[in-house]
């Protein structure tokens, strides 16, 4: 693991000394544990977190151990402080993460073989990366009706993990707030508009950002066959950075160095 300090756009160099899994690294002031870990190449599992959206803290997968802390802080929400000692992996954390992923599989109808998102699904990847090879909990086998009322998109609530990325992207980026959560506990579910069929919600702009950020196959393009959906979660950080004037280095294209001139 290398931890070469990389400058931020604007030239500030990281200056906060932090110990990450036993290695001394320098963090930016105000940087979250997750941002630091990603910058220096330490993987921490996440699901509800998405760069460009507000912090939610619902999936709990990025829980880490911090020396002196009684509870497990969330990497996505906790800013580094000088001399912080962070452990991103431990047998206990691995067990917690495995159980949380297994709970998500038990809750929904995550039949990868029949899912549009198979192959590009963050939940499927989380199972592989965290060693979830079976679900020891009682499967719920939900059967909620699919909302196919929208001309362009489709919603299968049985595949929804309630990460609220769609809720947040629609509210915070698109400004339409088509999505929200209704009911509570295991009755909680995604609703469009005033709990209407999606196709009847006039505030929907058809922008498709909710589909782009969905980590599973819950939100998809109409007519997508199993394995054909490819979400584009990086789109949002790209958009917000563009809005802020700090272009990011989007993986897989659109790479732009800081010293490059930005077209208006």
């Amino acid at each position: 693991m290398t931890a070469a300090p990389t400058p931020r756009p604007g030239g500030a160099r990281p200056s906060v000394p932090v110990t990450l899994d036993g290695t001394d690294v320098l963090a930016h002031e105000g940087e979250t544990i997750l941002a630091l870990a990603r910058r220096v190449g330490v993987p921490i599992p996440t699901l509800c977190q998405l760069d460009g959206l507000s912090v939610y803290g619902g999936c709990r997968l990025c829980s880490v151990e911090v020396a002196g802390e009684h509870r497990l802080p969330l990497a996505c929400a906790t800013e580094v402080v000088p001399e912080m000692e962070v452990r991103t992996t431990s047998p206990t954390l691995a067990n917690h993460r495995r159980r949380i992923v297994a709970l998500l599989f038990a809750e929904g109808s995550h039949v990868c073989a029949a899912c549009v998102a198979s192959g590009a699904c963050e939940l499927q990847d989380l199972a592989s990366e965290n060693g979830v090879d079976h679900i020891s909990y009682e499967m719920t086998f939900p059967r909620t009706p699919v909302d196919a009322s929208h001309p362009k998109f489709i919603l299968d609530r049985d595949r929804c993990v309630l990460c609220t990325r769609c809720v947040r992207v629609c509210d915070e980026i698109e400004g339409a707030h088509v999505w929200d959560i209704a009911q509570r506990g295991n009755q909680a579910h995604l609703i469009a508009g005033m709990d209407q069929p999606w196709g009847e919600v006039s505030s929907c702009t058809w922008c498709g950002k909710c589909v782009a950020v969905c980590p599973t196959g819950a939100l998809a393009w109409q007519g997508t066959a199993p394995g054909e959906l490819h979400a584009d979660p990086g789109l949002i950080a790209f958009l917000t950075d563009a809005r802020d004037g700090t272009w990011d280095d989007r993986a897989g294209g659109n790479e732009r160095r800081d010293d490059e001139e930005v077209a208006p």
Binding site: G57, G58, C59, R60, R99, I100, L103, L104, A106, E107, Y137, E138, T140, V161, L162, I181, Q183, R184, G185, N186, Q187, A188
Partner: peptide, 25 residues
């Protein structure tokens, strides 16, 4: 607790369902 969980975080929303199922069994 299962019925009163708000549903925001996974361990509480689903964990209480599964704990109840285990206790029930």
């Amino acid at each position: 607790c299962r019925d009163e969980s708000c549903g925001k975080c996974v361990p509480c929303r689903v964990g209480t369902v599964e704990l109840h199922a285990l206790l029930d069994r």
